[in-house]
Amino acid sequence: LLGNTIYTNLFMLGVAWQRGLVPVSLAALEKAIELNGTATERNRQAFVWGRWAAHDGDRVRRLSEPEAMQTADGQGPSDTLAEIVRRRREALVAYQNVRYAERYSALLSRVRQAEAAAGRQSSTLAEAVARNYYKLLAYKDEYEVARLHSDAAFHEQLRAEFEGDFSLHFHLAPPLFARPDRVTGRIEKRAYGPWMLRAFALLRHLKFLRGTFFDPFARSAERRLERQLLAEYEADIELIVQKLTPGDEPTLNAAIELASLPEKIRGFAHVKAKAAEQTRERRATLRQILLANAAS
Rank of each mutant, 00 (worst) to 15 (best):
R147G: 14
Q242S: 04
F213A: 02
Y143F: 09
G20S: 09
V111G: 09
L176N: 07
L63M: 08
H149S: 08
V111F: 06
N97G: 08
I187E: 01
L136T: 02
A68G: 09
R87Q: 14
Q157K: 11
R227L: 11
H155C: 08
T212Y: 04
F166G: 04
A173D: 13
E41I: 02
N132R: 12
L125Y: 07
R204M: 10
T245H: 01
F268N: 00
L137C: 10
R179S: 11
Q278C: 00
T5M: 13
Q70K: 15
A28H: 01
Y95R: 07
L203V: 14
Y233E: 08
K135V: 06
N36S: 13
D79G: 00
E102K: 14
G185E: 07
S220A: 12
R99D: 14
V22Q: 09
E41D: 14
E277I: 00
H171L: 12
L148R: 15
K264E: 14
A153C: 11
I84W: 07
Y100A: 14
P175W: 02
Q113C: 06
A254K: 03
G185F: 02
R159S: 06
Q45A: 15
D73R: 09
G76I: 12
E161S: 10
G164W: 01
E156M: 02
R87D: 11
Y7G: 11
L81I: 08
V183I: 11
E156N: 06
S123Y: 15
R219Q: 15
A91T: 14
A153F: 12
L286G: 03
L176Y: 01
